[in-house]
Design a protein around this nucleic acid. Structure first.
Lengths: 129, 129
DNA sequence: AGTATATCTGAATATATGTTCATCTGTTAC
DNA sequence: GTAACAGATGAACATATATTCAGATATACT
């Protein structure tokens, strides 16, 4: 993974921007070497963004328990089947869910265990006052 | 944390929706007991959503390394100071960054180590083809 | 074949979100 | 004091995103 994001939060020993806050180009470049590259940033942003919907999270919370078909999901989360289908398509696009077809039904399930870690980290954060 | 989201992804041993996909109200209620409650879902969604921006992630990747003032951040990520300031306000609102004022400068830093876990989990997920 | 069911899809609307611009506040230096 | 600077803010615009509705597919049943 990108080494530029680690947990150590050091104080700036020498504020770059003194006396003026426009730093020399040289130091800016040095900073930029630690910068998350735009393409990866974009992909991560898209991923977080797609998780950023209450209905999708509620759907995921059900799928975490057991696989379910669209109709049952719709009934449980109290949404239209169309709306659920759209959201599932979104979740498929980031490979968070997969599905199997069985007759007329399509059963969806969580595809990726990383969701759980994400969920946990965010829950912890939110529980801290 | 909510016990309804765990890693076990079991196959539906008895598809609820047979023969019709509209399940009995009783079973729907049972499902709903595993459902992430709307308020928490909303809070989590808001959190993920606020992480869902490439510029914010790029800012975070720099702050993960060291604390920085708005002007230097703006120079490094090639955005206007105004834009950076707006994004920092957003990041403050979910307590991902905090700041200290020193004269004219405001130095921002990561406030929460959970970001790192999130980052790691997403990076892993994205790296899997 | 024809009908009913389960799901998907595209287009349209409504809403949320990001960025920009102009302006405002607070700080430092002269 | 006033000028220059760092940062914050609000409003306006542009863009992205979610939801709805109408209709399309695909499967099962008779």
């Amino acid at each position: 993974m990108n080494p530029s994001l680690n947990q150590s939060v050091e104080l700036a020993d020498e504020p770059i921007c003194e006396p003026r806050c426009t730093i020399p180009a040289e130091q800016t470049e040095q900073l930029q070497s630690q910068l998350l590259d735009p393409l990866k940033a974009q992909r991560m942003a898209e991923f977080f963004s797609l998780l950023g919907d209450a209905n999708r999270l509620r759907i995921l919370s059900l799928l975490a328990e057991k696989e379910l078909c669209v109709g049952d999901l719709a009934a449980a989360v109290d949404m239209s089947e169309s709306a659920v289908s759209h959201q599932l398509r979104t979740l498929k696009s980031i490979r968070l869910v997969s599905y199997r077809k069985q007759g007329r039904h399509v059963f969806y399930r969580l595809q990726d265990h990383h969701v759980f870690n994400l969920y946990q980290a965010v829950a912890e954060h939110l529980d801290e006052t």
